[in-house]
Simulated scan of single mutants.
Amino acid sequence: MRYPKNTWIAYVFLTPVLVVMAVLVFYPLIKGISYSFTNMNQYNMGSKFIDPSYEWVGLKNYKELFRSFIAPKSVFRDVLIQTLIWTFVNVFFHFTIGLGLALLLHRKIKGRGIYRTLLMVPWAVPSFVGAFAWLWMYNDKYGFFNLMLKQMGLATIPWLGDSFWAMVSVIMVNVWIGVPFMIVTLLGGLQSIPDSLYEAARIDGASSWQQFRHITLPLLRPVAVTATTLGIIWTFNMFNIIYLVTAGGPIHSTEILVTYAYREAFRNWNLGLASTYGVVILSFLLVFTLIYRRVLKSNQEVNY
Results as ranks from 00 to 15, higher is better:
1 M>F: 10
4 P>D: 11
6 N>C: 00
7 T>M: 00
9 I>E: 08
15 T>G: 05
15 T>I: 08
16 P>L: 07
17 V>A: 04
20 V>E: 03
21 M>G: 00
23 V>I: 14
23 V>W: 02
27 Y>T: 11
30 I>C: 07
32 G>I: 08
33 I>D: 03
33 I>K: 03
35 Y>I: 14
40 M>L: 08
42 Q>I: 09
49 F>Y: 14
49 F>V: 11
51 D>F: 10
51 D>L: 13
52 P>F: 03
56 W>V: 12
59 L>P: 01
61 N>M: 08
62 Y>N: 07
66 F>V: 12
68 S>M: 14
74 S>R: 06
76 F>A: 11
76 F>K: 04
80 L>F: 11
81 I>R: 11
85 I>Y: 14
85 I>M: 12
86 W>R: 11
88 F>I: 15
88 F>W: 06
89 V>Q: 04
92 F>D: 09
93 F>Q: 01
95 F>N: 02
95 F>K: 03
97 I>G: 00
98 G>V: 02
98 G>N: 03
99 L>G: 02
99 L>W: 06
107 R>I: 01
108 K>W: 09
113 G>E: 15
117 T>E: 13
118 L>M: 14
119 L>F: 15
125 V>R: 09
125 V>A: 13
127 S>P: 05
128 F>S: 14
129 V>W: 10
129 V>I: 15
130 G>C: 12
131 A>M: 09
137 M>A: 15
147 L>V: 08
149 L>F: 07
154 L>N: 05
158 P>V: 04
163 S>V: 05
164 F>T: 12
167 M>P: 04
169 S>I: 03
170 V>H: 04
174 N>K: 04
175 V>H: 06
176 W>T: 10
180 P>R: 08
181 F>V: 01
182 M>H: 02
185 T>S: 13
185 T>M: 12
185 T>H: 01
186 L>P: 01
190 L>T: 07
191 Q>K: 12
193 I>P: 07
195 D>M: 08
195 D>I: 00
196 S>T: 12
200 A>G: 10
208 S>R: 12
209 W>L: 15
210 Q>N: 10
218 P>C: 10
220 L>D: 03
223 V>I: 06
224 A>N: 07
224 A>W: 03
225 V>G: 02
225 V>E: 11
226 T>Y: 10
235 T>P: 04
235 T>H: 05
244 L>K: 02
245 V>R: 08
246 T>V: 01
249 G>A: 03
249 G>N: 05
252 H>K: 00
253 S>C: 05
253 S>W: 06
255 E>K: 00
258 V>D: 04
259 T>D: 02
269 W>K: 00
274 A>F: 01
275 S>L: 05
276 T>P: 01
278 G>L: 01
283 S>H: 00
284 F>C: 13
284 F>E: 06
288 F>E: 06
288 F>M: 10
290 L>V: 15
291 I>K: 05
293 R>Y: 13
295 V>M: 14
296 L>R: 11
296 L>Q: 15
296 L>H: 11
297 K>N: 13
297 K>F: 13
